[in-house]
Write a protein that binds this DNA or RNA. Structure first.
Length: 453
RNA sequence: GGUGGCGUACCCAAGUAGCAAGGGAGCGGUCUGCAAAACCGCCAUUCGUCGGUGCAAAUCCGACCGCCACCUCCA
């Protein structure tokens, strides 16, 4: 078995990955806050970690947890502006998330907990942090005492002294330090809230991930993943909370994916340059979108453009077309060896910090090998690769034929007769006519095939 | 201002010391009546610029130029 290496944000280098518990990987990925539509940036994160999960599954069992932060200030704000219950807001966007992300071949998490359904556990954790001196109550709010946690800033490479003066947010004068963050927020008026020892309130932003990952996986995770924008403060704060609670390492590996960018700028609300996944799905096939999202190394930025999606669409079409060819059963040792070698290279690329671009290059080598030999064994190897990449079996571009099939077949028959009698002028005219209407004809050994342009 | 990252062919993109993967586009060939598809071949003496270290650098060091991200909600 090949050794697996991942770049660990915590140590800032590649490290060999071995799960804590012999054969099972505990993996937690920060899910969405369902206050708005899923966009391409989210899609990248979840497709990347889905592929990673599938890759790990070739060697280990994987317990994959991805949460929904379904109570939060942005959700409250949305519920006010839309004049609906906060629960309606979050459930609507959770539904949308599943509807769209599943089309990209993302398997549901083993556990997909919602904060609102884990309030007792949150309260318990907050109470314990107060008890051991890592948190303090301030008029219904509870804050984490950052100064008490020695390793604060290790993940994001920041020092607390540097963070203090640079804080651009208006400091809350009541807090002991501007770095202290809310574990529990007091709810006033009609804000949603739950009864707690500190009064009616709701969880602060970071506590849910600490609580739910530990509940479903355990005190120490093998892998914690998410977008690079979560490194600070979200993941830094998760570490502070969790390790203050357990005294154990919270996550052994921290994996962060790069942003989806538009003209090299991060996709974000304020720049109004974000693309809803649902909208992208209108224009491009799920298969091509997934192919595209995995085409770049996960830690690098991925620039979104129409032409890059079009290229992906073209690639997926070509791959599909090639794999539709019938495959023979007899395989020589030389061919089998070559296919096995390419497959090993493919896996080796993924073992090296999940290098999907290099894995793709081996995928194409295998495709070429299949095209030369047309062997079922090699096709099987390709399908095995796709157990990880998982774009082959997704919906392809829906190409509606501009003409009824019977009409196309009638013209093909006419052309066949013309060709038989050597009337190539007529044959070519028929082919050109169909091409103008968007039908491509291809003469093969097994007769004439047609497809939509 | 602090911290981190990036700059490789027409485009996308691997590679972090030993003669520059892969995909798209383009060009030539094979096949075909001709095409298409597929296959074969070609396509960066060069890796932002300038210096330095090394037998050897896209890869290490230094300076400079350009771009981006985080430090504030964010996948």
């Amino acid at each position: 078995m090949k050794k697996i290496y991942f770049y660990n944000t915590l140590t800032k280098r590649k490290e060999e990955f071995i799960p804590l518990k012999d054969d099972t990987v505990g993996m937690y990925v920060c899910g969405i806050t369902p206050y708005d539509s899923t966009h391409l940036g989210h899609a990248r994160c979840y497709v990347v970690f889905d592929a990673l999960r599938r890759f790990l599954k070739t060697v280990y069992k994987v317990k994959y947890v991805q949460n929904f932060t379904d109570i939060d200030d942005k959700i409250i704000a949305k519920s006010r502006s839309e004049n609906v219950d906060w629960k309606e807001v979050s459930s609507k966007f959770i539904r949308e998330y599943y509807r769209d992300i599943r089309r990209l071949g993302v398997e549901d998490a083993d556990f997909a907990p919602k904060v609102s359904e884990n309030i007792p556990e949150v309260i318990q954790a907050v109470a314990k942090l107060i008890e051991n001196g890592f948190a303090y109550v301030l008029d219904g709010d509870v804050y984490y005492r950052v100064a008490k946690f020695r390793n604060y800033g290790r993940l994001s490479g920041r020092k607390t002294e540097e963070l203090l003066p640079g804080a651009r947010v208006e400091p809350d004068k009541r807090k002991e330090s501007s770095l202290d963050f809310a574990l529990w927020k007091k709810s006033v008026d009609d804000e949603p809230g739950w009864k707690s020892p500190w009064g009616r309130g709701r969880p602060g932003w970071h506590i849910e991930c600490s609580v739910m990952s530990m509940k479903f996986i355990g005190e120490t995770l093998d892998i914690h993943g998410g977008g690079q924008d979560l490194i600070f403060p979200h993941h830094e704060n998760e570490i502070a909370q969790s390790e203050a609670l357990t005294g154990k390492i919270f996550s052994r590996f921290w994996l962060h994916n790069g942003f989806v960018t538009v003209k090299n700028e991060k996709m974000s609300k304020s720049l109004k340059n974000f693309f809803r996944l649902a909208d992208v799905l209108e224009k491009f096939s799920p298969s091509a979108i997934r192919f595209y999202l995995l085409s770049q190394h996960y830690r690098k930025p991925l620039d979104f453009s129409v032409s890059s999606l079009e290229e992906a669409e073209k690639n997926v079409e070509r791959i599909t077309r090639v794999l539709e060819e019938p495959a023979g059963a007899v395989v020589s040792k030389a061919e089998k060896d070559e296919a096995d070698r390419i497959y090993e290279d493919f896996i080796a690329a993924l073992c090296d910090d999940f290098n999907t671009p290099v894995a793709y290059s081996h995928f194409f080598s295998m495709l070429k090998l299949f095209n030369r030999s047309r062997l079922g064994y090699i096709k099987g190897r390709i399908e095995e690769m796709d157990k990880i990449l998982n774009f082959l079996n997704l919906e392809k571009k829906d190409k509606k034929s501009p003409l009824p099939e019977s009409e196309i077949l009638r013209r093909i028959n006419q052309r066949a007769s013309a060709r038989k009698s050597g009337d190539f002028g007529t044959a070519d005219r028929i082919r050109d006519e169909l091409l103008k209407k968007g039908i491509i004809l291809e003469d093969t050994l097994r007769g004439t095939k047609w497809r939509v342009k």
